[in-house]
Design a protein around this nucleic acid. Structure first.
Lengths: 219, 219
DNA sequence: GCCGAACCGTACCGTACGGTACTTTCGAGA
DNA sequence: TCTCGAAAGTACCGTACGGTACGGTTCGGC
């Protein structure tokens, strides 16, 4: 059964930040989750037990601190790679279900919600790339990962589509539905592990109803 | 061909706000679209040519002004009601396509983007109901409208599902996909009328592939 | 023409926050 | 033990913004 495999690496040396700096970034993340977007440099300094001056020295300004935090967090979330070579249909479905599980788990996590809120609230106004960073490590990363899988599935004769991007986008919609916008708008969508697995299976089944080549239909 | 029918009523007496007040709210909306979330009471007063004191007298405080704006805008967007009685399958599909068109049109509109950004950025922190207001007038309103249609379609033998809410949620995902999160994060997703219609038709077709009773499959 | 209400424009206040400067502390190396 | 640099702690500055106060103007009713 596909347990969530979105790995949070314990994260030391794979990053451009020193250990102390990562402590600071971790504090920022905590504050973002706990306090929402209203984090001040003073709160960060106090929480991380460092001086404001150090913050500015390391990260330039507030925007730089936020950007660094988002990038650092993004570098930590890695969807487990796919290595399925002998793609029978059951295996393909399993991979898709695992993908969906991972995605739903990440989407509904506190950190992801806080990060997305932060990026969205800045997307309209200031010149900053938080939005594109989140985008690159969110939907786009998922697409880059999933597309080869879908194409392998097509190659093995289990799927049928002309536009891979469109097929991916469809899968995305089937998995995410209105869940993300609802959590972002503050609704308490509590999904436990079991529910996530159910949703993921349903989404995969529906996906095969659309793009599957010779499926038995109807749930 | 389904033109967008999300009607923006010219909006006078159907509201709880006087004409002058609606001018102010309109100015707020303009500012939210142009400037992003960083709107100040002073900017609003200057833009609407009214005094700050009047703003506070009418709306209480900043939060009240934002809430009033969101509610006012929500009261303006009305998806055209469905009156299809003799639901043959073609009519049902047409209704769904129109729905999808309306929804995509609204989702990608400047005003909707600005409103959602505003609501999302406040959802995590302050005690305020912007999020739930947007939610009520967004996905939930769409669901309330669409659910009877789906059930009529089921009654007429064109659709097959047990959980109507789930079927709606699926349709939502097929229509919206990753479009909303991308526009909210600042990507420039430009959809012209023709593309929207294509997307809507595709979504409807896919929906029937999942929930249709006796459909001819594959695009 | 007078009065009061509504409202505009503007000046003002308090505070919160981003950013900077200065002092103190701590720890490593000579 | 002395020195030096890095970083903590703190005080400070400028400004932006929410919210209030007040004088001036318009306008409808008498």
């Amino acid at each position: 059964m596909p347990e969530a495999i979105a790995t949070i690496s314990t994260a030391q040396e794979n990053s451009d930040f020193s250990n102390r700096q990562q402590e600071v970034l971790s504090a920022v993340l905590d504050l973002m989750v706990r306090e929402g977007g209203a984090l001040t440099m003073e709160r960060v300094a106090k929480t991380a037990s460092c001086s404001k001056e150090t913050l500015y020295k390391w990260f330039g300004d507030r925007q730089g601190l936020l950007t660094a935090t988002v990038q650092w967090q993004a570098s930590k979330v890695r969807i487990a790679p796919i290595d399925a070579q002998n793609l029978d249909e059951a295996t393909l479905k399993n991979v898709l279900v695992r993908f969906a599980c991972d995605w739903l788990t990440v989407l509904t996590s506190d950190v992801s919600i806080a990060l997305n809120r932060m990026a969205i609230s800045q997307a309209g106004s200031t010149k900053s790339d938080l939005g594109s960073i989140v985008l690159q490590n969110g939907p786009f990363a998922m697409g880059r990962r999933l597309l080869p899988v879908l194409e392998m599935g097509r190659g093995a004769g289990h799927l049928e589509f002309s536009d891979g991007q469109q097929a991916f986008s469809c899968f995305f919609g089937l998995v995410v539905r209105d869940i993300q916008i609802r959590v972002l708008l503050g609704e308490d969508v509590s999904l436990d592990e079991a529910q996530i697995i159910l949703e993921a299976k349903q989404a995969t089944k529906n996906f095969f109803a659309i793009y599957g080549k010779n499926q038995t239909r109807r749930k």
